[in-house]
Amino acid sequence: MPDVDPYFAQTLRRLRLDRGLSLRDLGRLAHRAKSHLHELETGRKQPSTEVAHHLDQVLDANGRLASLVAASTSDRDEAEALELLRLADASGVGADVLDHIERAVDDLASGYATTRPTDLLPQVRQALAQIGRLLGSRCTLEQHRRLLVAGGWLALLRATVHIDLRQRAAADRHLAAAAQLAGHAEHREIQAWCLETRAWEVLTGGDYRRALDLSRQAQAVAPRGSSAYIQATAQEGRAWARMGHRRETRSALDRVARLASPLPPPDRPEHHYRYDPGKALSYTATTLAWVGDPAAERYAREVVADLDGAGRPRRTASARLDLGLALLAAGKPDEASAVAEAAITSGRVVASNWWRATEVVTRVEGTGISEARDLRDAYETYRPYR
Rank of each mutant, 00 (worst) to 15 (best):
R125A: 07
R145W: 04
H54P: 07
T115Q: 15
T140L: 00
L55A: 03
S72T: 06
S72R: 04
Y273Q: 10
Q130V: 14
L82M: 14
V149F: 11
L87W: 12
E341N: 11
A260H: 00
D18R: 13
A239R: 07
Q10F: 11
D377F: 12
L128N: 15
A220W: 05
S74H: 14
L328P: 00
H245S: 08
S74C: 09
G92H: 14
R125C: 05
L12Y: 02
V364L: 04
L323G: 01
A372F: 06
E270A: 15
T115F: 13
E39V: 05
R188M: 11
L85V: 10
G152D: 01
P266T: 03
G206R: 04
A159R: 10
G237L: 02
I344W: 07
A52H: 04
T345D: 10
S35P: 06
A338K: 07
D89P: 09
G366D: 13
A159M: 05
L156G: 09
A296N: 04
Q231Y: 11
V304L: 04
A171H: 03
L327T: 09
P122R: 14
D5L: 11
E189G: 13
R133T: 15
D18C: 01
E102L: 08
V361W: 13
P117R: 11
D75H: 14
R247E: 15
E371A: 15
D172G: 13
A218D: 08
M243G: 09
H38K: 09
Q180C: 00
L212P: 03
R258K: 08
L307N: 02
A300D: 06
V69Y: 01
G225P: 02
D306Y: 12
D3K: 11
A310M: 05
R198E: 12
K34S: 09
G292R: 03
I344T: 12
A260D: 00
A150R: 10
W200M: 05
A79W: 10
G292F: 02
D293G: 10
D293A: 12
A343Y: 00
A296R: 02
F8A: 04
A280C: 03
A129T: 12
A192D: 10
P266K: 03
G43E: 03
D293R: 11
R168C: 03
R386K: 10
L65S: 03
A150T: 05
P223L: 04
T49F: 12
L121M: 07
R386C: 02
K45I: 07
V349D: 06
A280Q: 12
W354K: 08
R168N: 09
G63I: 13
H36N: 09
A310K: 02
A342G: 08
L135Q: 05
G205N: 06
Q167N: 11
R315K: 13
D75Y: 06
V51P: 02
H31K: 13
A285T: 03
R238C: 11
R298V: 11
R158H: 14
